[in-house]
Design a protein around this nucleic acid. Structure first.
Lengths: 190, 190
DNA sequence: GGTGGTTACTTGCATCTGCAACGAACCGTA
DNA sequence: TACGGTTCGTTGCAGATGCAAGTAACCACC
């Protein structure tokens, strides 16, 4: 009888807007797979990161993105985009990380509105310690369970979904870096 | 210079456990694509659902899963699995939905520990109203942006990741339904 | 019938999160 | 120099979330 998981008959509550076709079973399963897979992976990864290193996933992401940035510094707005956080979420996360001494804030000499988040040596050490856990988690729960073809297929497909905002992001980053470069020239803080 | 988004050189902080290979660019991009795509889609969908119908995404999921269940009722534990929520998260969500009259609780005659969440007529009405918004969102932000091949590729790949727990879930659901069926026979509440 | 080990759900607590409002600083123009 | 329109980051507030502990009920076994 009703034994499969989420493969019962699709939402049968009726369609309002004329040409809005209900999801068929395959489409519904795709949608649920995205939700479930994301949830499963991030929960596990977060749990491991938290118990082994006392870092949440967003906190790890912030440290990691800073470590990859030139001078280990990034403006708040840029960092928010990279780490997939809202501005207010990032403000509070940076508050917390800076209380722990992993990150510090630095004002921009050229524009008093902008704030840089900067990775401290302690933050860098902490990140290095957590890195293997994160890497292992991403491999174990995600990457290594798939074949190369599957990975490529997912990457291509999901990147299609991001295409519109990737363009925006690239433009934004481009602009930020132009500003930074200009300032660097101005005050020689290479 | 540094212009692409998240395609700078991979985490270069060194590897601890011997055979843990760092993610290459492709793998990293796959991982970030999952995070970003999920975030983008769910945020938009949630915003639409919230402004147009005052429902959060988890709330919608709860109503939708109930509506698909036989008798529009599901035990809390089963519903938590379907809606991808923790038990405590579901308890509080059902608290809220039942304050709004969209759902009610019902104790199980056969086992005093179990609680059923039941969709009320009002909940059903609300779900029907929100359904087109949800459907449109899922199509617009996700399904309709992909080709059939891409959808299949994503579904197959992500389902691989869920394989282990899908089996568990199926077993759990199976068991729950066996219990329900037995009770139905017992007290004739078809 | 009592006892130990489980299961199902709930709750206390601390944390996290987002939206909307805010203040400060910037920019172009008059 | 003053002004309206923006951008950047922060904060107030209210709601969501998870973990771990708690309570009630079940079950197997003595």
């Amino acid at each position: 009888m009703h034994s499969q998981v989420s493969v019962r008959k699709p939402y049968s509550v009726g369609v309002a807007k004329s040409e809005l076709r209900p999801l068929d079973e395959r489409e519904m399963s795709t949608w649920h797979a995205l939700i479930r897979a994301h949830s499963k992976i991030t929960r596990r990864l977060e749990a491991e990161l938290e118990t082994e290193h006392g870092l949440t996933l967003p906190a790890y992401e912030v440290l990691a993105h800073l470590s990859m940035a030139p001078d280990a510094r990034l403006r708040m707005s840029e960092l928010a985009v990279h780490a997939v956080l809202t501005p207010s979420g990032l403000t509070r996360l940076v508050d917390k990380l800076s209380r722990e001494g992993l990150v510090c804030r630095d004002r921009c000499s050229g524009d008093a509105r902008v704030v840089y988040a900067v990775l401290t040596p302690l933050g860098s050490t902490r990140l290095e310690a957590a890195y293997p856990t994160h890497l292992r988690g991403v491999r174990e729960h995600f990457i290594d369970q798939l074949t190369g073809e599957q990975r490529d297929a997912i990457a291509d497909a999901l990147n299609v979904l991001l295409a519109s905002c990737t363009a925006d992001c690239a433009a934004a980053v481009e602009e930020c870096e132009a500003v930074m470069a200009a300032e660097t020239v101005l005050d020689g803080t290479a």
